[in-house]
Amino acid sequence: MVLTDTPAKLVYERPEALGTTVTHYCPGCTHGVAHRLVAEVLEEMSEVGNTIGVASVGCSVFAYNYFDFDFVEAAHGRAPAMATGIKRVLPDKTVFTYQGDGDLASIGMGEIVGAASRGELITVVFINNANYGMTGGQMAPTTLPGQKTTSSPTGRDVKRQGYPIQTAELLSTLEGSAYIVRRSLHNSREIRRAKKAIRTAFEVQKKGLGFALVELLSTCPTNWHLTPVEARDWIEERMMPVFPLGDYKISSAVADLKV
């Protein structure tokens, strides 16, 4: 090995907005990727010191241990209401919620629809991994038809257990929603697209254009009983047909936004 005097070019480092806490997420889980994207975006926007995050209940309940800025922890499903309270009294702060699918699309459906319909100037990062991860892999509102979970052991039977909720599509029907998109974290191309969407969602808030949500298809190798690599493929092959990636609501003001 030849050592040269040429300084190495730094191409990748931990964003300062992400602390040094060792991850508690499972190997192959993309929560860490989503955290990193949020941290990078806030740093690039110079918003870290001006941000208040709202953590939710689920695997990301301790999200605030990773982010190095102010945080509050909401009750299950209520993060959009809590974020509403904060944003209304501190309108100059950047306020976002980080919620999973059980939290947002099941127990918290009232709060997310309320916040979106009011056009609350908050940003929502929504992790869809098709199950309740924290409690050990039960059926979620996003669980696919036929998908086996610990509470749908023979596979989700849509006749008895209903159909998955397509959150981005649903929220896109509301006038208060300015920016609603679905992205995925299963490969580097989609991760880059996800980051751009997260950036846009925060810009929408800064410019006061309305409610912004980025749904992120996310892996859960542990509860899917797959390897991390298989889990990435599972997103593409199984989740994406039910949850197509795309832009579901881009208000005209957002369309004019240059990010």
Partner: peptide
């Protein structure tokens, strides 16, 4: 929960 959030400030 809005009160909860706002009270946190």
């Amino acid at each position: 929960n809005m009160v909860y959030g706002a009270a946190c400030t």
